[in-house]
Design a protein around this nucleic acid. Structure first.
Lengths: 104, 104
DNA sequence: TACTTGCGAAGCTGATCAGTTGCATATATA
DNA sequence: TATATATGCAACTGATCAGCTTCGCAAGTA
């Protein structure tokens, strides 16, 4: 099974889970309450997110708290980095163009 | 068919195509030369990327040049934005902690 | 000890996907 | 006009996926 971050965040439910857990650690049941799918299905998503280290588990008795591994999110940011230069470059060029237009 | 940016960038081949086309516009054949899959398969990826507006087409005779729609990439960046605050917050807290340790 | 609760894992199903082959179309060239 | 080239599209296939149901297990609680 392919298990990279990009495939993990491709699913809208998983992105919603990430957004939920980003605020504070939550148990699978608490997370599942926010969706119209079964707890088991949410559990599967949690497993995928945990396997690619986007989420980390903190057991507490029979409960398991899931929280976001923020550092892992930076890997997506790192990939975006190369393109960020491009769109910043576009703005820089636009600025340059506007400067030239002002002069004329 | 689901066609959002996140699903588009989930595929490693498509990410490679994006990286290629980011530098300069390329034709499907030229792009396909960089992969071990058939031209038709690459063409399929190009269609998906174009449909979700990550790539734009520029016809030139019988050739079609594909180039990156940089502005669309920012949508991923926008989604990351909410979490960026988190990891920047972590560093801010770490800085604070280091400051306190220095004082003691 | 018996019962409830919180959770994960296995197995099934219909949908989707990445890749293939084969074909159609449009443009350039002889 | 005939041929080669550049490309897209349709149909097929094996793999993967998201969801479901069923089950098992461990930790609390009566």
């Amino acid at each position: 099974m392919r298990r990279d971050i990009f495939q993990a965040i491709a699913d809208p439910t998983r992105r919603a889970i990430i957004a939920l857990v980003a605020l504070h650690a939550m148990t699978p049941n608490a997370i599942a309450e926010n969706f119209d799918i079964t707890r088991q299905s949410v559990s599967k998503h949690l497993r995928i997110l945990t396997e690619c280290e986007l989420l980390k588990q903190t057991p507490n008795g029979r409960e398991i708290y899931y929280s976001l591994e923020v550092s892992k999110m930076k890997e997506v940011d790192l990939w975006l980095e190369q393109f960020r230069k491009l769109w910043e470059g576009q703005f820089a060029q636009l600025d340059q163009l506007l400067e030239q237009m002002k002069k004329q």
